[in-house]
């Protein structure tokens, strides 16, 4: 599972190495370019962008675009900036991640250590549900949220994200617990611990690594979601991504590119920070979710 084990024993010549390093650096620049350009230009006043070179450093650096993006930009009806939507996203992500991770842990525990006839079918159905195109559930979900009185509300969005997050969180914990020695569970059973006791005392204390992976994964996915947000959020519960899109796509007035960039970075900031702080686990999580399936 770890990416950072030994590297290859293949030897390369000096010319080969130079080529390799050149290619690697070229691609590093390719990946860094958009972010770098966004940061640079978010610090420029508007005329400097429309009249100048995007690669040039700001002549008169200003934080005004950031202030505008955060608190005064026109999104929707009112000029509130991204602030309220940022809050929406936080209020949506935290409970959705917490609930789906907790359920995933319990499901993974049952599916590996308390198997019952048909457990493989349950797992297969869950696995498939991770990959469905969400377009297939948009119509009935909109209907159901309406019937439940949750249309356009944060609780409605949280419900949606929990429901469609369970598949992946279960997948992570199941794969992790599958490698966890069943003898330990048996030993605890003989010692007299019951279902929940074994979970709390034996399984959870060693679940740190996978919990981190799962939380990062769910956080990133739910924070970055656009489709559910744009379909179900309405005006009041609009998450960050939808607000950003509305800001960038708004056809009224002058296009304030610098504000757009500041807003885009603000929208990306939480996941970027999570990635920088816990990137190593993030990679592992991606691997666990994909290579292992």
């Amino acid at each position: 599972m770890s990416v950072a084990t030994q590297s290859t024993a293949v030897r390369t010549g000096r010319a080969g190495r130079a080529l390799i390093v050149t290619v690697l650096i070229f691609f590093a620049l390719f990946y860094l370019l958009p972010l770098g350009v966004m940061v640079i230009n978010s610090l420029k006043p508007l005329p400097e962008i429309t009249g100048g070179n995007m690669m040039a450093l700001p002549q008169e650096p200003t934080l005004e675009p950031w202030r505008s993006a955060w608190s005064t930009a026109q999104i929707g009806v009112q000029a509130t900036g991204l602030k309220p939507y940022f809050l929406n996203s936080i209020l949506m992500v935290v409970p959705a991640v917490a609930i789906s991770t907790m359920l995933g842990a319990l499901n993974g525990y049952v599916l590996t250590k308390w198997r019952f006839p048909g457990h493989r079918w349950v797992f297969g159905l869950l696995l498939f549900s991770c990959f469905i195109p969400f377009q297939i559930v948009l119509i009935p979900m909109a209907r159901l949220l309406g019937l439940m009185g949750l249309a356009g509300s944060l609780p409605g969005l949280i419900l949606v994200h929990v429901v469609y997050g369970i598949g992946f969180s279960t997948l992570y914990f199941r794969n992790y617990y599958a490698a966890f020695p069943t003898e330990l569970v048996r030993a605890a059973m003989i010692d007299g611990a019951g279902f929940f006791r074994i979970f709390w005392r034996i399984m959870l204390p060693v679940s740190g690594p996978i919990a981190v992976v799962c939380i990062i994964w769910q956080f990133t996915n739910i924070w970055n979601d656009f489709l559910f947000g744009v379909s179900f959020a309405g005006l009041d519960a609009m998450p960050m991504t939808v607000a950003l899109n509305n800001l960038v796509q708004s056809s009224t007035g002058v296009r304030e590119y610098n504000v757009h960039f500041a807003a885009a970075i603000l929208a990306a900031l939480p996941t970027l920070i999570v990635y920088i702080v816990a990137g190593r686990y993030f990679v592992r999580g991606l691997m666990a979710g994909s290579v292992k399936g």
């Binding site: 860094l32 970055n224 970027l272 920088i276």
Partner: peptide
């Protein structure tokens, strides 16, 4: 880390950039 960070971004941010 540099190669991977775009994965952490939302497609909306990527699209904007």
């Amino acid at each position: 880390a540099i190669y991977l960070y775009p994965m952490a971004l939302s497609f909306i941010v990527t699209g904007t950039a």
